[in-house]
Lab assay of single mutants.
Amino acid sequence: EDAPSSDDLEQFAKQFKQRRIKLGFTQADVGLALGTLYGNVFSQTTICRFEALQLSFKNMCKLKPLLNKWLEETDSSS
């Protein structure tokens, strides 16, 4: 699987934040939901840093598919 470019990540982080707010979730909600869904709880700080593009590139790449999946799950259930 190709690693996303930093442009991709930036684009995704923006879209993710907009969708999250529109769906009415806090950063902490998302962190907990990831724990429920995938067994990895993320702190509010981590989600905040992801949205602000302040995580390392490697961590951004790791989180992106999880957050993407969460969006898909959340979209389909709302």
Rank of each mutant, 00 (worst) to 15 (best):
L32P: 00
N59Q: 11
C61W: 09
C48A: 14
S6F: 15
R20D: 02
N59G: 11
I21N: 00
L55V: 04
K22T: 10
K62S: 08
K62F: 07
L66A: 07
S43G: 06
G35L: 02
L37T: 10
P4G: 10
M60G: 02
F50V: 03
E73F: 10
E51S: 02
V41R: 11
N40W: 07
L55Y: 04
C61T: 05
I47C: 07
G39W: 05
L32Q: 14
D2Y: 15
T45P: 04
D7G: 11
D7T: 10
V30M: 02
L55P: 01
S77Y: 13
L71P: 00
K62P: 00
D75Q: 14
K58R: 09
K58C: 03
K64N: 06
D2P: 15
N59D: 15
E10K: 06
S76Q: 14
G24V: 00
I21P: 00
E10G: 06
I47M: 02
F57D: 11
K62A: 10
V30G: 00
Q11W: 02
D7W: 05
F57G: 07
L66M: 14
C48N: 08
K17M: 07
A13V: 11
E51V: 03
L9D: 02
N59R: 12
E51M: 04
T26A: 04
D8W: 01
N59E: 14
L9A: 03
Q18E: 12
P4T: 12
T36A: 09
G31R: 04
T74M: 11
L23R: 06
T36S: 14
W70Q: 00
G31Y: 00
A13D: 00
L37W: 07
D8K: 05
A52G: 09
V30T: 01
S76P: 14
E72L: 11
K14R: 08
S77L: 10
K64T: 05
G24W: 01
L9H: 02
R49G: 03
P65F: 08
S76W: 04
T46P: 03
T45I: 03
T36M: 12
D75G: 10
T74A: 14
F42R: 04
N59P: 02
S43D: 15
A33H: 06
T36G: 09
P4A: 12
Q27M: 07
K22E: 11
D2R: 15
F25S: 04
F12N: 08
A28Y: 08
Q27C: 13
L66K: 06
A33C: 04
K62R: 09
F42P: 07
G39Q: 07
C48W: 05
K17A: 08
Q27T: 11
Q15K: 09
L23I: 00
K14P: 03
A3G: 11
Q11R: 09
D29I: 00
F16W: 02
K69T: 07
G39M: 00
R19V: 03
K22H: 13
Q44M: 07
L37F: 11
A33T: 05
F50M: 03
P65N: 07
L32I: 14
R19P: 01
S76L: 10
V30D: 05
D2C: 13
Y38H: 12
Q18C: 05
G24C: 02
S43N: 13
S43V: 01
K17S: 06
K62V: 10
F50H: 00
L67N: 03
N68P: 01
R20P: 02
L34P: 01
N68G: 11
A3M: 15
F16C: 01
L34C: 05
V41W: 09
Q15Y: 06
T74Q: 13
S76F: 14
P65E: 08
N68W: 09
